[in-house]
Simulated scan of single mutants.
Amino acid sequence: MPEPVKGPASYFPSIEQKYGRPIAEWKDLIRASPLTKHMELVGWLKTEHGLGHGHANALVAHTLAEDRTK
Rank of each mutant, 00 (worst) to 15 (best):
P4L: 02
G7F: 05
S14C: 08
I15R: 01
A24R: 11
V60G: 01
N57I: 04
K70A: 09
A56Y: 01
A58N: 04
S14D: 14
G7R: 07
H62K: 10
T63P: 01
G43C: 06
D67K: 11
P8V: 11
A24N: 11
K46W: 03
E40R: 13
L59E: 00
M1R: 14
L29S: 04
P22R: 14
E3R: 14
H53N: 14
A61P: 00
S14V: 14
L45D: 00
V5W: 06
E16M: 11
I23A: 04
H38C: 08
K37F: 10
M1W: 06
E3D: 09
K18S: 13
N57C: 07
L41G: 02
L35A: 12
W26F: 13
M39Q: 15
R68S: 09
E16F: 06
A56W: 00
D28L: 09
K27P: 01
D67C: 07
P34G: 10
L35S: 06
P22Q: 09
P13W: 07
I15S: 01
R31H: 13
G54C: 09
W26G: 00
L59A: 03
V5T: 15
H53A: 08
T36F: 12
W26C: 02
A24G: 10
Q17T: 11
P4T: 11
H38V: 11
K6Q: 15
L59F: 09
K18A: 14
P34T: 14
S10W: 07
P2F: 08
Y19A: 02
